[in-house]
Design a protein around this nucleic acid. Structure first.
Lengths: 241, 241
DNA sequence: GCCGATTTGTCCGTATGTATC
DNA sequence: CGATACATACGGACAAATCGG
């Protein structure tokens, strides 16, 4: 439950847009109208609206109004977006999630790991490999590294449920920023061993670095998805240079 | 040349961060300090900083300061990000761009096209297929559809140079919002015909919808990249729900 | 083409809350 | 506890774009 005013307004508008209460290609009420509706300042309205613009829900038109450009998506694949845990993604895609830990070790970052992940040389790390199941099928292979000084006392049992829940609820670590790269790669023998690949000999790969609320890089993940169950979404806004 | 104050500050800070003038893991000057430096209000500083946060350059820490989390990237592949034309991307990646138009037609949107692209049934469209060359090698296959009512008088000659330049400079169309989806797909016979695939039998695919400054969807593009020359970057920020 | 009303864009100053040290 | 720093919110002023009369 959001407590900040702009978050409530943001959420309310978002719901109204998603339910087509405010329809595609229509305009939002003017800022001054919404000031009356929500009983707040124009700045607060503008903040909520600009969040929706960042997500590709609306597009403000100078002098005219704010056009709704959100369209409901027919989602066949497993869509990835925002920062969310595997469990959250699975729930959003209406699929049943499962996880099997196939490797769990403690290692120390060296030069090679530093180059790849950004963890300072000498940092103690947890190294985890997990197979992710959607509706019972092994479709995603995850390789994680966690900074031990942040993610304390990680166990295989925790890795098998939700590390994000453990971080947020038990350790109080706030996940804040995540940098990601998307590529497509040939399958490896490890992929073949653990995943149900059918005829696929390539995977969609997301590698990400995650920072906690202290601005410390504490997680590096490589997530390897079977292509027919993968879709990565994004919205970009042009800025003048 | 940005004229808005917050854009200048944003640009200045960004340059100082990229040049390590403000180093990785360091803190920015406090907001009040920057108010003095730039001679503006705190709101304006906050706006510039929050843009940097959105791009994964910095991370504000409540009560402590704003940590710099930008790291220069060693880019081996052709990286895609933001809204930019093929020419701009190529320049940013220090590669020589070339384009060959292999198909140019005028079509009308029907039910099937509407489902796929979002163009209303009956809209007159341009349909273009182009092969993109990087340093002389055919690596990307682009399928574009443009709304004729926005992109007037498109010709194969224009398509061979830069449609974005034509739009912005000649027609005065402002590109604003772009929604994208990333997937990985098997190659088709058309891919094989035009691209230098080596042993690859799969491609990284970006499909995007682009909206102009009136909030009108005017472009649909499917961009098919050879995987070894493809990398898509993204930054996400966690929001509380 | 001009003018005025409407609407979004930019910026300011201030007040208050909350987290860190 | 006090000082510092970021977070939220308000209200006001003026600029710029759009549209209708």
């Amino acid at each position: 439950m959001p407590k900040a005013k702009f978050e409530k307004i943001y959420k309310d508008l978002k719901e109204k847009i998603e339910s087509q209460d405010y329809p595609y290609q229509g305009l939002l009420p003017s800022e001054n109208t919404m000031v009356d509706i929500y009983g707040c300042s124009r700045n607060t309205i503008r903040r909520a609206v600009s969040m929706l613009a960042d997500e590709g829900y609306v597009q403000p038109l100078h002098g005219k109004g704010v056009r709704i450009i959100y369209q409901p998506v027919a989602k066949a694949a497993f869509t990835v977006g925002g920062i969310e845990s595997f469990k959250e993604s699975a729930a959003r895609n209406h699929k049943i999630a499962g996880t099997k830990v196939v490797q769990f070790a403690e290692i120390t970052s060296d030069e090679r790991i530093f180059e790849k992940t950004g963890f300072p040389v000498g940092s103690p790390l947890y190294y985890v490999q997990r197979v992710r199941y959607l509706d019972g099928k092994p479709l995603i292979f995850d390789i994680n590294m966690f900074l031990q000084s942040v993610v304390k006392d990680l166990t295989p049992a925790i890795a098998a449920s939700s590390i994000y829940e453990y971080l947020e609820n038990t350790l109080g670590v706030q996940i804040v920023t995540s940098k990601r790269k998307m590529t497509a790669e040939r399958t490896t023998q490890i992929d073949e061993k653990y995943l149900e690949l059918n005829d696929y000999d390539f995977l969609a790969v997301i590698t990400s670095q995650t920072f906690d609320s202290n601005g410390i890089l504490f997680e590096y993940t490589q997530s390897r998805h079977r292509p027919d169950y993968f879709c990565f979404q994004d919205t970009a806004i042009r800025k003048r240079t």
